[in-house]
Design a protein around this nucleic acid. Structure first.
Lengths: 238, 238
DNA sequence: ATTACTTAGTGCATTCATTCACGAAGTCCA
DNA sequence: TGGACTTCGTGAATGAATGCACTAAGTAAT
């Protein structure tokens, strides 16, 4: 199984350049690997190597990259920094996207303080909360604002991506607020399916859900083992 | 696009009952919805309704559920609590799975304190860290232990699922430790591809990666808009 | 009982994704 | 210059997932 592609999303039929959904999901993965390679002063990489590093098949890697254009050199491979640039361009990561985090609880704080955002193309423009006791505290280098300021923040800072980090029962209204404020994409950490207009992009991150998937496969393993234990004696008899 | 299925995983070819990967990923989603329905005293549900609530197609819902057996009643629908029970059984969620969290930093603490685990089939058996200054503090109701105790904890508490919440550069060694200790599945929050034996199940949770996917679709939207702006005047001329 | 209606279960067509396998295009070295 | 070798790019084959549309099986009401 492929552990990357969150298959409960709500993406548009990929408007512009027609890159298949499945490939889009892998591009950020390649990007991350290329970044690591740059750090290691590696300048060239073949599809075979990139496949090994990403846990994919070499042909798949080549096809994925071919959607961006013909940026490889036959007999040689890909120039790491050039490919990096092209993937960044394709993903719209030449600029830093401002994001707004809704919810300044445990999760919101952890997300805001997470360093992995800034070096990967995002900047926390604001953290908002309804709880006025949280307003004013600092999370991720920015002061927590009241949720009423959301429309103004989104407008003035041109935020197009919102992150929902509120409890499940408030997630839908948080989403509604974000959309009314003008956000076009939502990363949802709350364990609910949001009811949204189809033009809004959504991705879901739900730890319990991921664990439950793992649980299924662990259960399969146990079941298989039990079957083996039961059938083994028989085979001895036979 | 479907926002649920993490497509960078490393799952086995679904050993036991042959349920397609794509369906397995949706079962936890149905489970969550059924739980909500129970709370609302709803006792029956049709595939059509369940489809609406989960953002899926009704035929897909029926097909997914049919992998578990024939638990619906034609002309009526599904009995909520019975279906709930069957999905739980299939996912191995009749018991609470003990999990161990590696890393007691920001993320590890947030995960340990996250209430959404216990009511969805998991219990934090232990939190471990290499940093001895963190050992002894309490996270998620359990004391943080030193990572050296991992093998013993995994054995004595029958832990089969490990959660990696350490910085990227330590994720691989954390994974190696978990596997050597006897864990069979890993939920990886670190932004690296782990190099693991194929029989180990892995799921990845990477916020930056999800944001980058959203970034792509936002970029598409912008591009489409620009094209429209450019081509509109022409159509006026024509 | 019969008829009208609802809804699960499923075979089949279609669409989407992956993988293979080969030709094109380059490098390297004698 | 030419021949051996590497690796990309991609058409075509295979495989997986989706969604339609029909059948089977139930309810409800007259």
């Amino acid at each position: 199984m492929n552990a990357l592609s969150n298959s409960l999303c709500n993406m548009p039929p990929a408007s512009g350049r027609q890159i298949p959904e499945a490939a889009v999901v892998r591009l950020p993965l390649y990007l991350r690997i290329l970044n690591d390679l740059i750090a290691d002063n590696c300048t060239q990489i073949s599809s075979e190597q990139l496949a090994a590093l990403s846990g994919q098949n070499a042909a798949k890697v080549r096809k994925d990259l071919s959607y961006l254009g013909s940026y490889g050199t036959r007999g040689v491979g890909y120039d790491v920094s050039y490919l990096l640039y092209q993937i960044k361009r394709e993903l719209g990561l030449n600029k830093a996207w401002p994001v707004v985090i809704v919810g300044a609880g445990n999760l919101g704080q952890a997300l805001g303080n997470y360093g992995g955002l800034s070096n990967r193309g995002f900047v926390v423009a604001a953290v908002v909360d309804t709880d006025s006791s949280k307003v004013g505290s600092v999370v991720g280098g920015v002061k927590v604002a009241h949720v009423d300021e959301l429309p103004q923040i989104v407008q003035s800072k041109s935020v197009s991506i919102g992150i929902i980090a509120v409890p499940a029962q408030h997630a839908q209204s948080a989403a509604d607020l974000l959309i009314r404020a003008g956000v076009g994409s939502i990363l949802n950490f709350a364990p609910v399916i949001l009811n949204l207009p189809p033009e809004i992009n959504v991705r879901i991150v739900d730890m319990a859900l991921e664990l439950q998937i793992l649980s299924f496969y662990e259960q399969c393993r146990i079941d298989a083992l039990e079957v083996a234990v039961v059938s083994a004696p028989e085979s001895v008899i036979a």
